[in-house]
Design a protein around this nucleic acid. Structure first.
Length: 275
DNA sequence: CTTTCGTCCTGACTGC
DNA sequence: TGCAGTCAGGACGAAA
């Protein structure tokens, strides 16, 4: 389940391998993912020279030539692998790009919640998928002062508010649970009830869990990629996510980590530490 | 307007 | 062992 740290890890790994290379072949092995591929995508990709790689929330932006951008979203199950042409396309390899040095990039996505789009660089900020995104949680704009303002009047649990990409871009179910635990805030607390003090703690916790996860991804990237070329997932230790019934870390409460369902999603938390 | 909920999809897992 | 049923979740669009 790629969230901001996994996407950032993929971006960094990809940048090392494909920046400056020319795409010599683009194979679209189906016409769509979550939505249809844009018209003439293969033709736009073939011959293009790859520039820098950026990220906005959970989207990867790959600069092509002087004015193009390839937009990728990994959805739930998307993976990007780099390798040689020797490997035949596997099941769920939906987009396969061959570069001028023989590198083959494969976008594999079993559940097909991912997305591929092509845009002109000038319209990046206005693109419908990007325009409404909230600030980058690791950027200068994001802090307690911003959060208080963004959450004001929201009669929804803080858990749901943080999953809303318009409030802050890049968090998913795992890192929201982890950040709320680190901040000592109940996932059920109404967003509007978060004042400056709690917002400061929450913003700091969000930055911390993301920064730590990116560091873990970076350190595991080298070995992981050598194993099978896959970028997108790495082993990481969660404090509460997926740990229902286990002892709460750093707390001796009898109940341990609890799981509840909020807006159809699992939330993991400690009822004693998080208020 | 705001907020919630169903939907898309496949693979991993559970229980009989 | 096999198979049906359940669950996982990002983001969008419909519904309340």
């Amino acid at each position: 389940m790629p969230e901001l740290p996994e996407v950032e890890t993929v971006r960094r790994g990809l940048a090392l391998r494909i920046s400056g290379r020319r795409i010599v072949r683009a194979e679209l092995r189906r016409p769509d993912l979550r939505r249809p591929f844009p018209p003439a995508l293969a033709a736009r990709l073939e011959g293009a020279v790859i520039g820098g790689l950026g990220r906005r929330g959970k989207y990867i932006l790959i600069e092509l030539d002087a004015d193009g951008v390839l937009l990728l979203h990994l959805g739930m199950s998307g993976r990007v692998t780099t390798g040689s042409a020797a490997l035949p396309a596997a099941r769920h390899d939906h987009v396969v790009l061959t570069l001028d040095d023989g590198t083959v990039i494969r976008f594999n996505d079993p559940r097909r919640f991912g997305l591929v789009d092509y845009l002109n660089r000038g319209e990046t900020a206005r693109h419908p998928l990007l325009a409404g995104l909230g600030p980058e949680p690791l950027g200068d704009e994001f802090d307690g002062r911003y959060l208080v303002k963004a959450l004001a009047g929201k009669l929804t649990p803080i858990k749901a508010a943080l999953l809303d990409q318009r409030i802050v871009a890049g968090l998913g179910n795992i890192y929201v649970c982890e950040a709320l635990f680190r901040a000592g805030l109940s996932p059920r607390r109404l967003a509007a009830s978060i004042g400056r003090g709690r917002a400061d703690r929450l913003a700091a916790a969000i930055r911390l869990v993301l920064t730590e996860a990116i560091a873990a991804g970076g350190s595991s990237l080298r070995n992981y990629v050598q194993a099978d070329g896959a970028l997108g997932y790495f082993q990481h230790h969660w404090a509460v996510y997926g740990r229902e019934g286990e002892p709460c870390p750093g707390c001796d409460c009898a109940e341990g980590v609890r799981r509840i369902v909020q807006s159809g999603r699992s939330t993991f938390f400690c009822a004693k530490r998080q208020r």
